[in-house]
Nucleic acid binder design. Sequence first.
DNA 1: ATGCTGTTGTTACGATCCTAAAAACACGGC
DNA 2: GCCGTGTTTTTAGGATCGTAACAACAGCAT
Lengths: 250, 250
Amino acid sequence: MSVDEPEAVEAFERLGLTSYEAKVFIALHRLGSGTARDVARIADVPRSQVYSVAESLEGRGLLEIQQSSPIRYRPVDVDEAQDILRDRFESERERAFDYVDRVRQESTGEETQEDIWTVRGRDRVDDRVVDLLSSAKGRIVFGTRLPELVTEPIERTLECAVESDVEVLAVSRTDAVREQLGSLEGVQTDSPPSHHGEDHRSGRIVMVDDDGILLSVIDDDGSETAIWSSGSLFASVLIQLIEASTQTPS
Amino acid sequence: MSVDEPEAVEAFERLGLTSYEAKVFIALHRLGSGTARDVARIADVPRSQVYSVAESLEGRGLLEIQQSSPIRYRPVDVDEAQDILRDRFESERERAFDYVDRVRQESTGEETQEDIWTVRGRDRVDDRVVDLLSSAKGRIVFGTRLPELVTEPIERTLECAVESDVEVLAVSRTDAVREQLGSLEGVQTDSPPSHHGEDHRSGRIVMVDDDGILLSVIDDDGSETAIWSSGSLFASVLIQLIEASTQTPS
DNA sequence: ATGCTGTTGTTACGATCCTAAAAACACGGC
DNA sequence: GCCGTGTTTTTAGGATCGTAACAACAGCAT
């Protein structure tokens, strides 16, 4: 009982249906088939509206109409309906990104601007970490307190880096993290210098070569926010500062 | 050059973005990165609106924000954006159909109601034909004038039926159709009796056992509309009528 | 046949919500 | 002051929601 009806209706709305369409579609699946009256009774949709809403759903291929009196409606099979919606999504996605692909500016390869970017949300940060890691040419430093921030795609990217002769160093105060990453072939592990303050809101740190860095924190509400930079002077300077403090306790 | 910008914006709208969001997203991919002013200039969006629209896009994970003055925006990689939208779609689809699956009425297996259903659209008719064919227990008659109405899934379903010891008869006036279906192992072919009138608006006919039938026509605008029935008295009677006229010319 | 009742399908219309679009405003640098 | 940035408010338009009125029709008792 994880999803109740209002939630399901909202999900359908985000898939592009109106709330009436969602309610009628759900009602017809509960009924198997039925008339406008049957639907209106259990769907909380005015009967007079059922006719046009059903026509719209028929246009999407989500139900079939029996021309009789009274008119009867019948939903298509759930799997068929999912295929229809998925096909629609994929075709729209293709149309949209076709155009973006054509007009987008070729990525400038090496960033030259002095940019520090912000990324909000764990999944987005994960993606950015993988991006950064896979751009490594010579050396990676990866650190985090939290085992759950070492995802499987990140591990795979680290292994891939090792295979490309990239030096990979995993730093953590947490034993579990060191064990997890140390078990990867060719990954060295270490503990952070004791003079580094520990902040319970720190998330992860990633340094790539001498010019790529990502630093994340855990906000009060538990969400993760990261800043990152690549190929910028900021990144180089930050990395030098951090590396220096690592090697030369102040 | 198959997709122009307005079309792409519409496609993004159907993917759940507003038109402003779509325009800003596209503009940022053309720019690589830029400020609200840059975006407003080429995106046909009021500059004052770019800020909030960009925040909304950041919330969806489609772009990143550089906290500086002026604020700079940077779109995520196109592939990453597609993954994000696809993940969102799949999770909504799952939520929606989870509920439908839980509350839907178990299909009554054998239909008992006297129902004749209408299906509009070639793809939908294709689906229904496959459904019907795969319910066959003993005998299938499949007929059409038009080679393009013999799709690959239909062929596969016919082959599958043959393997289940279902007698499959393909009927067509068109040589190409007879050849195409005759090449399938175990499928017999035939021409329709000459006394049957030929109507250029006829589409296909499918008869399954003695109680499943589908009949389609091609509308004036080229679209296909089918009626079908399964397990009903109507279906049985129609089939008997048609079979009788086949065997006993009036 | 007549009148009554309930259902069906169509159409119209106001209320509401969201977005698009414009405008007003505060702030800071030059 | 003047210009550009960023925030906020306001207005208008469109789609959806929700109610209501209507004609057509079937069933049923008078």
